[in-house]
């Protein structure tokens, strides 16, 4: 029989939501909604099966355990005598076995690995049933999704993460307790927040740090933790300034080291556009930043006005006279 990990579907939905750039709350809402739908389904199934079995007969007694944890073996006590057929129906199992009435029926832990509503049905002359709920075991793994993978520094509400706790059998733990989120840039702690999970999901959203580099994001619950990295990159160039000098063929202009407003060096390869205007027209060179500086040679004669821009950020203008 195919085993289906139903709580995993909730995880998949959450993962899909996170990857698909849904907000963290949207992901949580979707996840919770799916859990509710699943629970409602099992409730309806249990009512239907209970009604069915009660209508068949109520002559014998079957006592199901009150609280069961996924993966743990339990036993069900029966009354009466003679032989009977026992059915166990659950989210990931459907078993049939012959039992002796009056003895206890042992349920193996491997039959109870999926959390959810189970039905125990005992049939001899007539059929009796009882239901019980298998709760997820304690968290054994954390699914942790962080978005985005690359973020400009000092961007408000730009980093978000969502964590879901699963037991060793892949059951979503709907009540794992509090999950701690820690954000660290280098040795500086940017955030440490305890978030209580709702319907098994905990999430955060925060502003990115001020320095470029890897941002470590850790989610932990008890001894469990999951680590993700986000690349914090420089923001738009700020205070773009150029200097230039005339050569025999024209001009050589170069920027001062290019930084963003937080002082982070803009990555090499970023394009800086130099524009020189003289009597013969306009000349432009799109030069990449190398070692923090962009440099260009421009053919120009006479008085020249040189301007600079990178993306939508403008820099200063440079006026170079013709006689120099």
């Amino acid at each position: 029989m195919r085993r289906e990990n139903h709580p995993g579907r909730g995880f998949a939905a959450a993962a899909k939501a996170a990857v698909g750039r849904e907000s963290g709350s949207a992901a949580v809402n979707r996840c919770a909604t799916q859990n509710r739908i699943r629970l409602a389904f099992y409730f309806c199934l249990s009512v239907a099966l209970s009604t069915l079995s009660a209508s068949i007969s109520a002559a014998q007694d079957l006592r199901a355990p009150s609280a069961v944890t996924a993966g743990e073996a339990v036993s069900i006590s029966t009354t009466g005598s003679g032989k009977a057929t026992f059915y166990l129906v659950g989210p990931g199992v459907s078993n049939k076995s012959d039992v002796a009435l009056g003895n206890e029926i042992s349920l193996r832990g491997q039959d109870l690995r999926d959390a959810g509503q189970y039905f125990a049905i005992l049939c001899s002359d007539s059929c009796h049933s009882a239901s019980f709920f298998v709760a997820p075991a304690k968290p054994a793994s954390l699914a942790f999704l962080v978005h985005p993978s690359r973020v400009p520094v000092a961007a408000s509400d730009a980093v978000s993460g969502v964590a879901l706790a699963f037991d060793q059998f892949g059951n979503l733990n709907l009540d794992p307790g509090t999950i701690n989120f820690q954000l660290t840039a280098g040795k500086t702690s940017l955030l440490s927040r305890d978030v209580a999970a709702h319907d098994g999901v905990a999430w955060f959203r925060t502003t990115s740090g001020k320095s470029a580099g890897p941002l470590q994001v850790v989610a932990s619950i008890g001894e469990l933790s999951a680590r993700r990295n986000v690349q914090e990159v420089a923001s738009e160039p700020c205070n773009l300034r150029i200097a230039g000098q005339r050569t025999k063929d024209g001009l050589v202009v170069q920027t001062e080291p290019v930084h963003d407003c937080a002082g982070n060096p803009v990555p090499d390869g970023t394009i800086v556009s130099f524009t020189a205007t003289d009597a013969s027209g306009k000349s432009t060179v799109d030069a990449p930043i190398k070692h923090g500086i962009a440099r260009a040679e421009i053919a120009a004669s006479g008085p020249v006005v040189v301007s600079v821009a990178s993306g939508v950020a403008m820099g200063n203008e440079l006026h170079i006279g013709g006689g120099q």
Partner: peptide
């Protein structure tokens, strides 16, 4: 790749031999 860098020099709007408006200039392979 950031290479090659091609400068666009002496751009100006002009007329061609047929009298049409064109933007002309020179490309400089740096």
């Amino acid at each position: 790749s950031a290479d090659p860098v091609i400068g666009v020099m002496n751009q100006k709007i002009d007329a061609d031999v047929q009298g049409r408006s064109v933007l002309r200039g020179e490309l400089l392979n740096q």
